[in-house]
Amino acid sequence: MSFVKLTTSALAIAALSASAAAARDQVQVAGSSTVLPYASIVAEAFGENFDFPTPVVESGGSSAGLKRFCEGVGENTIDVANASRKIKESEVAVCAENGVTEIIEVRIGYDGIVFASDIAGNTFEFTPTDWFLALSDTVLVDGEMVANPHTTWDQVNAAFPNQPIQAFVPGTKHGTREVFEDKVILAGCEATGAFDVLKEANGDDKKAAEKACIALRTDGKSVDIDGDYTETLARIESNKDGIGVFGLAFYENNTDKLQVATMGGVVPSTESIATGDYPVSRPLFFYIKKAHIGVIPGLKDYAEFFVADEIAGPDGPLSEYGLVADPKLEETQSAVADEAVLGGNS
C-alpha cells in the first residue's frame, strides 16, 4: 500500500541521513548548569568570530556531564564536559575503562556562592558558625551534641533579628551543595567545637566526624532545592523569611529582588572573591577529550578562545557576567595550547 511504501521510504531516508550525520561538524558540550551561562556566552561569541558553527551546550549537572563524557571516544559522545568541581578519581577510572584516557583539564575561573534574602527583609551579617548553628542536625550544648533547638535567628546569634529560620539550600545533586557543606557548615562545625566532640564520639574517625557535621536538620527549617536558582528565588518571593543560597552571577542579575548577606564581614563581589577575602567560592572547570582534537573541527579553537584574555580575563564578558577571573589564566592558556592532559603528558 502507498502508506506502507511511504513509511518504509521515510525510515530508509531517516536511517541513511543518520549515518551521514556521523560526520559531526559542531563542538558538543554538556555538564554543570553553573558553567552553562559562561559556556553559552563563549559559544555564541565563538560562532560569531569563527567559521565554525556555534557549539551546542547542554546542561544537566556536573556529574551527568562527566558521566556522558566518560562514555567513550567517538563522534557520538560529547567533546567537552563542564563541571563546577574537579573530576573525581573514580570518574577518571571509568573514563579510562571506556577508552577516554587523555583528558585535558581547563580551569576557567572562580564562582562565588552567596546568601541572599528578600530585598525588603532584614539584613544579615553571617559567619559560618551562624549557619552551622541554624541548620545542623545536632549542635553542641554544654559539651554534648543535642538535636538542633534553634527556631529563630536571634537564638543563633543575639545580634540577629527575631526571624524564623528558613533556608533554601541546593539539593545534593548540585555541585554547589558540596561547597556549601565544605566551606560553610563544616567550617562552622569546627569553629563551634562540635567537630572535636564528634571526632571523639566516632573514635577519632575524621571522615565520620565530617559526615556527621554536614548532616542538615530535617524538620523543614532547611529545604533542599533540586531545581535551579529561579526556584530558590520563587520560594523566597513567597516566603519573605527565607534565605537562599545562590550563585554570584544569579544574584547580580536579580539585585532588584534580593539583598545579599555578608560572610565573615565581607560583601561578595568578583573583587572580594578574586582576592580570596570572601570565603565561599570554588573553581569552575571544563574537560576536553584529547582524542577528539583534530577530529571535531573547531574543538581546540573553542578551548583556546574560552580561556583567551579577551573572554575569560578580568575585563572580558565572562567576568562581566559574574565569573571571577583566574589570576593564573596564563598558565591555563599555555596548558590548553600544549594540550596538557591529566596526569602529565606521556
Binding site: 531517516a14 541521513s17 543518520a18 551521514a20 550525520a21 559542531q26 558538543q28 554538556a30 552553562l36 559556556a39 553559552s40 559559544a43 555564541e44 560562532g47 558553527p53 556555534t54 551546542v56 551546550v57 547542554e58 546542561s59 544537566g60
Partner: peptide, 21 residues
C-alpha cells in the same frame, strides 16, 4: 539533550533540520 544553549544554528536543509542539534 534538547534543552540547553542549543537552538543557535538555523538548519539549512531538510537533513540538517532533522539531524543537527
Amino acid at each position: 539533550g534538547m534543552v540547553g544553549f542549543i537552538a543557535s544554528n538555523p538548519p539549512d536543509s531538510i537533513a540538517s533540520g532533522l539531524l543537527d542539534p
